[in-house]
Amino acid sequence: MTQTLKINGREKQFPEGQIPQTLSELLHQLNLDQATIVAEINGQIVERASFAETKIAPGASIELVRFVPGG
């Protein structure tokens, strides 16, 4: 049995029980620097200050915008 998150339109499977519990954990797993990420869960923007306490439910649709230097 696997659980799914939809990240930037693509489904990502996790073995049951191994789905990240919070947005912070997900970003850590994906090796992304939190300071450069704007995140939306199910269409709702999440403030960076709340990443650590924002729970992720299986099936959630998550949009991650990563900013890189340059401009």
């Binding site: 300071a35 403030e47 230097p69 401009g71």
Partner: peptide
């Protein structure tokens, strides 16, 4: 948003959206 540094880009976008 016309910044150079990524944390500043993040800050502006997050501020405008929230």
């Amino acid at each position: 948003e016309c910044f150079d540094l990524p944390d500043q880009k993040q800050m502006l976008v997050e501020t405008v959206l929230t």
